[in-house]
Design a binder for these strands. Structure first.
Lengths: 219, 219
DNA sequence: CATTTCAAAATCATGCACGATCCAAGATGC
DNA sequence: GCATCTTGGATCGTGCATGATTTTGAAATG
C-alpha cells in the first residue's frame, strides 16, 4: 500500500519510563538516592501505577534497585571492581565483534555512520560544561554500538546494550580534555580497519582502544 | 550479635513472578500464546496489579512480549538464526571464561560441584519422560554457570544468565539419547583442564563442547 | 543533663476494585 | 459481498484501603 505512518499509541507507563530514565542519566538523582513513588506521581501528574511499572522496568535494566516494603532507589555507583569486569568483558566481545564486522565487509553507509559519530565527538567544544560531555559520550556510545550491530549478532548486541547505561553514567564524570585526542586516533584506526575489511587489524585496533579507555578511566 | 535468620519478606508480586516464570519454563503455555491478565488474576487468586508487575519483569527478561493496548504473550520460539547467534556468542565468552577459571586455580569445592553436576546428568535415567530431560538440562545449565562464576567476572555471569532461560526452553525439546555420551566426555575434559589449571586446554575443551552442542542442536 | 527506650503518628509501599479507553469480532445495512 | 456500526472483552489508569517502616517526641534511666 503506502508507507503509512504508524499511529504511535502512547502508553503512559512508557512516557514515565523515559522521563525517569532521563533524569537518572542526567544525574538528577544521586547514586543510591531514594525514589518516592507518590512524590514522582505528583511531579509527573500521573497515578502511582505507571510509576511502579516504569520503576520495575528500570530495576530489570539495573538502573534502579528495589527493596521489598522499603522502596526504590537509584543504583549505587559501581565500584572499581565492576569497571574492571566491564572492561575485561568488553575486551573479549568488542574485538571479536569488530573482526566479525570487518569480515562482513561493511557497506559505505556503515562507514559513513561511524565517521559521523567521530565527527560529532570532535565537534563538541572543548568545555567542561555538562551538555558537551554528554554529547561526547553519547556519540562514543553510538560508535561502539554501530560496530556491534555491523557484526550481525543480536545476542552480542543485546548484551552490549545492557552495559550502555551504566557506562554512560560513569563516562559523564570521567571524560578528560587531554584524553580526547588519543580517543580520536584510536577510533580512526578502527574505522580504517573496518573499511579495509581486515578482521585482525579491526580486532587489534579495538583491543588497543579499550585498553586505552580503561587506562584513562582508572587513573 | 548472632547469625540472625533473615525474615523472608514476601511480596505478592515476587510469588506471582515465580509462578508465571515456572509455567513458561515448564512449557505450560505455547510460544506466542496470549496471557490474559484477568485470567491469571483469577487463577492465582490475586489482583491484577501484581500480575502486571510480574509480567513487566518477564518482559524485561525477554520471556514475555508486550504490545500496547493488546496485551502480553509468551515470547515466540526463537528462529534458527537466533540459536546461531547464541552459540557464536557463547563460543566467544565461555572458552574465555573457562580459561579465566583455570587461571584462577579453582578450589576443590568448585571441582567437586562440577563433578556433582556431571554425575547428576548421568544419573538421569535414559528416558523420554519430561522430568528427567528437565533434570538433565538444569544440571547442564548449572555446570556452565559454575564455570562462569569461577571466572570471577560478574558482568559475564550476568550476560550468561540472560541467555539461560531461552536456552532452557530450547534444550527441553532437543536433548537426544544418543548424544548424551558425547556430552559427558566433553564435560569431563573441561573439568580435567580446570583441575589441572591449564587455561588453554580449558578454553579448547569448552570450544569443542560448544561446537558439539551446536551440531547436536541443529541436526 | 545526656542518652536510651518505647510508643504513637506520619510516611510510604503494596494491593484491590472500579471506571475509562481501546481493540477485535460479530451483526446490520446497502 | 463489502463497509459501517455495535457489542463484548481486555487493557490501562485512578483512587483508596491496608499494613509495614521510619521518624518524632516524650518519658525514663544512668
Amino acid at each position: 500500500m503506502n508507507g503509512a505512518r504508524k499511529i504511535e499509541r502512547v502508553v503512559l507507563g512508557d512516557q514515565v519510563y523515559e522521563a525517569i530514565k532521563e533524569r537518572i542519566l542526567d544525574q538528577a538523582y544521586a547514586p543510591g538516592e531514594k525514589l518516592n513513588v507518590d512524590g514522582l506521581a505528583r511531579e509527573l501528574q500521573v497515578s502511582s501505577t505507571p510509576i511502579r511499572e516504569a520503576l520495575a522496568r528500570l530495576v530489570a535494566e539495573g538502573l534502579v534497585k528495589a527493596e521489598p516494603f522499603i522502596g526504590f532507589a537509584t543504583a549505587p555507583l559501581p565500584d572499581r571492581r565492576y569497571y574492571e569486569d566491564v572492561y575485561s568483558f568488553r575486551g573479549v566481545i568488542e574485538p571479536w565483534a569488530a573482526a566479525q564486522a570487518a569480515r562482513s565487509r561493511p557497506g559505505p553507509d556503515v562507514i559513513a555512520a561511524l565517521r559521523d559519530e567521530v565527527a560529532a565527538m570532535m565537534a563538541g567544544e572543548p568545555s567542561r560544561e555538562y551538555r558537551s560531555h554528554r554529547g561526547f559520550t553519547e556519540a562514543d556510545d553510538r560508535f561502539h554500538r554501530i560496530i556491534l550491530q555491523a557484526a550481525g549478532n543480536q545476542v552480542a548486541l543485546k548484551s552490549y546494550d545492557d552495559l550502555r547505561f551504566h557506562l554512560h553514567i560513569s563516562r559523564l564524570y570521567l571524560t578528560r580534555e587531554q584524553d580526547v585526542g588519543l580517543t580520536h586516533q584510536e577510533h580512526f584506526r578502527i574505522v580504517d580497519a573496518l573499511e579495509a575489511g581486515d578482521p585482525d587489524a579491526a580486532a587489534q585496533a579495538m583491543r588497543l582502544h579499550l585498553e586505552g579507555s580503561y587506562e584513562r578511566l582508572i587513573k
